[in-house]
Computed example of a mutant assay.
Amino acid sequence: MRIGFPLTRFVLSILALGELVLGAPAIAAEPDFRLTTGMVEPWTNSAGTGFHQMLIRDLFQRRGLKAELDVNLASARAFKLADDGVTDGLAGRVAGMEKEFPNLVAIPERMFVNDFVACGLPGTSLPANWGDLGPRAVAHIIGWQVFEHNLPKVRDLSTVKDSSQLLALLRSGHTELILHERWQAMWQAQRQGLKLVCTDAPLARTPMFIYLNRRHGALVEPLAQTLRAMKADGSYDAIARTAFGDLGASTTGLK
């Protein structure tokens, strides 16, 4: 039987639709867990290859779970969303936050250690401790409490709103030393083409943790065990080298 034009067109339409369906990219599955962090480059980046992003994905994947990490710079808002269960948790946060947010539980293995350092241009004499900063011209980002609480009275103090302004002061000679978090300082200096030297021994060290909403409490100890295993088997170090390797500083103290 000869197929008439309307039927032929119908058959061809069905075949075309099938090609579209078969050829369409698969829709990515939603993650099992969605966490947030307040840390930016190089801890996170738009490509998803920052230290926080890679570590969280690998950590949860080893437990058969898919996790994604978003950046939320509004710290108070991020904690409230996690405490309310809107998000599943947070990464890269200081210890003790469960005192203020009772629905949060910290994974009892530190995610990393944040080093706060003094940096200068090559040839600059670097301080060994807080007391050495007294006779110097120093700058830091306003609101960073680790510096505001520990910095002694110095000869000259400048405060700025971000990392870029901080390095601009150093480049222009308006300050001798800047105080910053090690990896953000190195990343920003590389981005600006500025050679920077930082203290090997930090002025302060702060352990940082992953928090989960307590409805995921059954995962807290298993994830801690997995994180310890990653540190022992070298995979943690591999992630650190991938994220920070070209910044010219050692990652040995990170964990």
Results as ranks from 00 to 15, higher is better:
R57V: 05
L219Q: 13
V117C: 00
S125E: 15
P25H: 03
L65T: 03
F51D: 01
I107A: 00
G89R: 05
L177C: 03
A204G: 02
T37N: 10
N150M: 05
F10Y: 14
D32F: 02
R136C: 03
A189S: 05
N114Q: 14
R241Q: 15
F5Q: 11
R34P: 07
R171E: 15
D156M: 13
T36E: 14
W130I: 05
A47C: 05
Y236H: 05
A224T: 07
D58C: 09
L170W: 02
E68P: 10
L17Q: 06
D233I: 04
G92Q: 05
A189Q: 04
F101R: 13
M54Y: 06
W43P: 00
D162E: 12
P31S: 01
T44N: 00
A106V: 01
F147Q: 00
G143F: 00
L81M: 14
P127Y: 01
Q145C: 03
W183N: 02
A189I: 02
Q184I: 02
D132Q: 09
L194K: 06
E100T: 12
P202A: 00
L69F: 01
G89K: 05
A243F: 04
E30D: 13
D237K: 12
L179I: 01
M1G: 15
Q165G: 14
H216G: 10
F5G: 08
P222G: 03
P102Y: 10
F147R: 01
V113F: 08
R77D: 08
T36Y: 14
M230L: 05
K153H: 12
F112N: 07
I210S: 10
D58R: 13
K66C: 04
I14N: 08
N72S: 13
R155Y: 07
L167A: 01
I210A: 11
D84Y: 11
T251N: 11
V86C: 08
A16G: 08
R63Q: 15
R57C: 04
G50R: 10
F5N: 10
S13E: 12
Q145I: 07
E41D: 07
H52M: 11
M230Y: 00
P127M: 01
V94L: 10
A95S: 12
D156N: 13
L227H: 06
A95N: 10
S163W: 07
T37G: 09
G50I: 08
F33P: 08
G131Y: 05
D233E: 00
A82N: 04
G234H: 02
I14R: 06
M208E: 09
V154Q: 04
M186A: 13
M230V: 03
S125C: 06
Q165C: 06
V40G: 03
V71A: 02
T226N: 04
S163C: 04
A238S: 14
G96R: 00
F209R: 05
R228K: 12
I210D: 10
P202D: 00
R191N: 12
I239L: 05
G64V: 00
A29M: 09
R228L: 10
N72E: 15
R136S: 06
R34Y: 14
A67H: 03
L7Q: 12
T206K: 11
L90C: 09
L20R: 12
K66P: 00
A91W: 03
S125Y: 07
F147P: 01
L65I: 02
P122I: 06
Q61A: 15
F33Y: 14
L69Y: 04
